[in-house]
Amino acid sequence: MEFIDIVLSISDGVLFGTTYALIGIGFTMIFGVMHKINLAYAATSIGGAYVSWAISTLVPLPAILVFLISAIAAGVIGWLVYLCCFRLVPLDTPLTTLLATVGMLIFIDEVVVHETDGMPQPYPAIFDDVFFEFGEFGLRGDLLFIFVLSFAAMLVLLYLLYRTRLGIATRAVAQQPMAAQLCGISIERTNASTFVITGMLGGLAGAMIGASVGVLSPLLTLPVTVKGLIVTVIGGLGSIPGAIIAGLMVGAFENLFLALRGVTERDMYVMLLLFLFLTFRPGGLFHRSALRD
């Protein structure tokens, strides 16, 4: 294996890693605001992508519109997950909400399997016929597009969090919920909007993951859940910059080991990375909490 192949696999991995970063941001934001883990989050993302696929089988749509529909659909699913698992279920016992989200993860998966008979479905890609060459080095057009779109989504999120009223409310609830209430901020509404916003990010990520694989399959939810959790832990629970950096790292790492060791061994090394972090830096890259960066 040539040096340039290693560079290429890392750069492809970094580009694709932005989708993991988005998923990680979703997990980490929900944790930051509610101090709860939402295990149904990756299922929300893939569920959104499935809705957009279903709509695209009825009406032919350009791929970019399909992505957008995925984001919107996942926002709605995110809100439903909030209602079922965090609003109607009592919040004071952590295990209750955790198990509710496990149930929701399986439920969404089952709905998908039922509706598609468990068969993978084709999902449109964008710019998969474009390739940018720089001498020996090159970048895949579809991955570059994923990278740009993910970063655009992150910028919109940061604008929302740091430049708007909704952002003040979200950070206030994350940092000091009682004082937030005293300012007149509704915790329940902030929780709900966090689920909608993270749902939309997830839907976009789900669509891009589907697009890069070329198909949607119910088999995607488990690995995306696991990668999202790993990114969240490596980044530091509650840290958005941590999730971004960890997402790119995990993307690069897994693609490198895909190139070096093949697809059947790849995820073992990602797990090793997780154990290394848990052992030597259990707080993650950014050991802080609650949207505080």
């Binding site: 409310a169 004082a179 005293l182 007149g184 505080r292």
Partner: peptide, 18 residues
């Protein structure tokens, strides 16, 4: 109970939220 990782100005803005 100030919001520790918000600026002083943002804390005041949060106070005017209502």
């Amino acid at each position: 109970l100030v919001f520790p990782e918000m600026t002083v100005a943002e804390n005041l803005r949060a106070g005017a939220y209502s």
